[in-house]
């Protein structure tokens, strides 16, 4: 019996996507692929081109050059079809503050041509999904930021889109609201939605997303699995070592090997910098044990998404 998994089906594909604002290129030839079912993190500094990309995918902006397909539909030629399959949540609330929660969702339901009879049930369902059932009759202006954010998510889900484009959905939320928002997104992924999420809170994207893209000055720097970008950045990985015996001797031992780029004492520990990209760092333990040093602790200074982001970007904007 074959154990091969089916090849991933692309939900979003962009080819040479470019957007100019006058002489300034907000996006320069972006090639991006997001597969169906992905929870895709879109990372970049302010002004890097994330919002522009999401706006093009949402059919709000037309690209100056290049193309983008969403579930096989071209965002320019088949904009109407694209609008039915996407849900776009911009980086602002976009609410009528004097409307009631259900009224607001009812309005957008009508915009998506959901029949009146079906709308009430749909509104109730999405409110339940985002945990706002108890606020049905409340005025939107009276809701907290977190609740307004959730309402925004409920609006995105009202027509049951297959792809969600979420621009900074967790910005400005308190830790509890953020965690709840992330839990909802995981639940949506479990329900089979493809989600593209742009965020500055990289620690959360790291645990939430299966794939990420890093963009700077409108250009794609990396796109792929989260672990992949860590590995790619692992050159010069750092291992921290604690020995009970003479640490100077241990440093000597480590420095004598070509696999080790550097070793130095630091706060009672030894900071070992590996020379290669081999993810296996047992070589450090081997050297020390065979050299007669008594190893107490060995831990990798794991590179996080934030560290990766800081290494690959310079924070430059257009």
């Amino acid at each position: 019996m074959s154990t091969e998994t089916a090849p991933p089906i692309p939900a979003v594909q962009t080819h040479g996507l470019t957007r100019m604002y006058g002489s300034i290129a907000a996006l320069s030839g972006l090639d991006l692929t997001v597969n169906k079912g992905d929870l895709f993190g879109f990372i970049g500094s302010n002004g890097a081109g994330k919002t522009t990309t999401l706006r093009i995918l949402a059919t709000f902006l037309a690209p100056s050059a290049g193309s983008a397909q969403i579930l096989g539909y071209d965002v320019v030629r088949d904009a109407d079809a694209v609008r039915h399959v996407i849900g776009y949540m911009p980086d602002f609330f976009g609410v009528y503050k004097d409307m009631e929660v259900t009224e607001y969702l009812d309005f957008f339901g009508a915009c998506y041509k959901i029949p009146t009879a079906q709308r009430e049930k749909t509104v109730n369902d999405v409110l339940e999904l985002v945990g706002l059932s108890e606020k049905k009759g409340s005025l939107i202006g009276a809701l907290s930021r977190g609740m307004q954010q959730r309402l925004g998510l409920a609006r995105v889900l009202i027509h049951d889109p297959q792809l969600l484009l979420l621009d900074e959905p967790a910005s400005g939320l308190d830790p509890r609201a953020r965690i709840e928002m992330m839990a909802i997104l995981q639940e949506l992924q479990r329900l089979g939605k493809t989600i593209i999420i742009s965020s500055h809170i990289l620690s959360e994207l790291q645990t939430l997303c299966n794939r990420v893209a890093i963009i700077e000055k409108g250009r794609l720097i990396y796109s792929g699995p989260v672990q992949g970008v860590r590995d790619q950045m692992s050159q010069g990985r750092v291992i921290w070592v604690r020995v009970s015996s003479d640490s100077a001797k241990a440093i000597e031992l480590l420095k004598s090997r070509t696999e080790i780029a550097d070793a130095a004492a630091s706060d009672g520990e030894i900071k070992v910098t590996l020379a290669g990209t081999d993810p296996d760092h047992s070589i450090v333990a081997d050297i020390l044990v065979h050299g007669g040093a008594k190893l107490i602790e060995l831990r990798e200074d794991e590179i996080g998404l934030e560290e990766v982001f800081m290494r690959v970007t310079r924070g430059e904007t257009q």
Binding site: P90, V95, F108, C111
Partner: peptide, 18 residues
């Protein structure tokens, strides 16, 4: 004006209402 100020215009423009 209200749609423009609140950002709802952007949401309407990405809905099936052309």
């Amino acid at each position: 004006r209200r749609e423009r100020d609140s950002g709802v215009m952007e949401l309407l423009l990405v809905s099936p209402v052309n």
